[in-house]
Design a protein around this nucleic acid. Structure first.
Lengths: 143, 143
DNA sequence: CTGGATGCAAACTCTTTGCATGCAT
DNA sequence: ATGCATGCAAAGAGTTTGCATCCAG
């Protein structure tokens, strides 16, 4: 785990490069995301923020998660029904989701998406990524 | 394309088998879905219904799309942000989605999900299906 | 100083729920 | 006749927008 100073410096560089301001809200949100290193909802992120920097608003959290997505710091993982999840693991990996309780976990599916990408181009699209989600029931929900 | 009579008979059998009622709303919704044979939102389905059977309510459309999903007649395709899409093609196939305008189209990705399913089981899940979505920009949105 | 960033409240979209009425069985 | 299905209205969840204030540059 990088130190707080390292995390803050990383974000500061990212922001300066785009001419955007370095605010305490952004620095702390960034730390929260990187320290947890798992899927969080906007609301969970806000609660975690609150311990270090009270009164941060949900719209600010959403705005900065969107900004971080543009910066490549998080990936938004849209989930059926429930709230959106934000994932600080940005490298290619896949997910398994429980259709009953909405739990989501990482899996290493090692899916070969070459044909999928080719089919997407043939349909006139410029592909950017391939989302693979195995949907099923988690151990708790099967019981 | 099957005739109206065939479509109606198919649905009637499905419903009777589960002890559920055969209503005009269900018959017409079923026809609309099968005739269009593409992704429709609940709202689009309602508008299409309206031409043949006015004053069908959106809650009824949702309730019956959910029922049809249990019957295996449609598959709900959750899409980032926008409204849910309901797909009358229920056999395995994949999608490409435009991240800007939300357009969704079928592709034949022929993805091998064996490792994904194994990884899902290893994580304690009972997999039911694998959703593969190539995300990118459609030809219109690139311009 | 100056304009982008924030907090608050309110709007918005999509979907589900409650309840009285209606109709398939 | 019975009770599931419907239509309407309203609630609910999640996210976005408007706007006055604030603070990073």
């Amino acid at each position: 785990m990088p130190t707080t100073e390292t995390l803050d410096r990383e974000l500061t560089e990212h922001l300066r490069r785009r001419g955007q301001r370095v605010t305490p809200q952004r620095l702390v949100l960034h730390r929260v995301l990187r320290e947890r290193d798992r899927h969080v909802t906007a609301e969970e992120a806000m609660r975690a923020l609150d311990r270090e920097l009270p009164n941060v608003s949900l719209p600010t959290v959403y705005a900065n998660l969107e900004l971080f997505e543009e910066l490549g710091i998080v990936r938004r993982v849209a989930m059926e029904g429930g709230p959106a999840l934000f994932d600080s693991r940005t490298e290619q990996h896949d997910h398994v989701a429980c259709r009953r309780c909405g739990r989501v976990e990482d899996i290493e599916a090692s899916v070969d998406d070459v044909r999928a990408l080719r089919a997407a181009r043939a349909a006139g699209y410029e592909p950017e990524r391939t989302d693979v989600v195995v949907v099923g029931l988690c151990s708790d929900c099967r019981a």
